[in-house]
Amino acid sequence: MDDDLELLDRVASGDREAFDELVRKHQKPLFSMLYRMVSDADDAADLLQKTLVKAFTGIQAFERRSSFRTWLYQIAINLAKNLYRDRARAGRVPLDDVIIRRDPKTLESLIKKEARERLYKALTSLPEKQRLTVMLRVQEQKTFNEIAGVMKCSVGTSKANYHHGVQKLKAMLSDTLTGEIKSDVHE
C-alpha cells in the first residue's frame, strides 16, 4: 500500500504521529511550488497552511483514485490561483530579494535582479495552464504524467501546454538568451 495511504488510515484512527509525519513529508515540496506560483514567501507560507488544513478537514472527499500528493497539489494550485490572479492584475512583481540583499550593490546582483524581473514578467504573461505546466515541469521537476494528474488533463495536453509555454518564453526573452551552453551540463 502507498505509504501516504497507510498514514492516512492511521490518521483516521486518531494517530497524531501519523498526522505530523504526513505534514512533514509534504510541506517543503508544497511550499516550493506555492512560492513559485505567488513569488512571495509570506503568501506561500500562508497558502501552505491553508492547503494542509483544507486537505485534512476535507479528507472524506479524497477518493484515493490519485496519490495523496497529487490531491494536495490540486488543492494548493486552486488556492494559489486566486491570489496569483489578483497579483497579476495589480501588475505587482513580488520578487523575493533575499538573495539580492546579500550584496545589493554589485553590478552582477543588479543584472541578476533585472534578469529575474524580466523572467518573472514573461512567466506571468503566459496563460495560466501553460505557466503552471512549465513551472511544474522545470522548477518542480514533475513528470508529464504527474502534471496531467495534478491539472486533471491528459498527458498529451500537458505536453502541449509545456511546448507552447516554452516557445512563448523563448520568444519574449530572445534578446536575453544567448543560446550558449556549457560543454558539460552535468556539473
Binding site: 534578469a115 512549465v134 513551472m135 522545470v138 522548477q139 516554452v166 523563448k170 526573452l173 550558449e180
Partner: peptide
C-alpha cells in the same frame, strides 16, 4: 540550445 538556457534560468 536557447531553450535549454531558458530552462536553466527557470530552474
Amino acid at each position: 540550445r536557447t531553450e535549454l538556457e531558458l530552462l536553466r534560468l527557470l530552474a
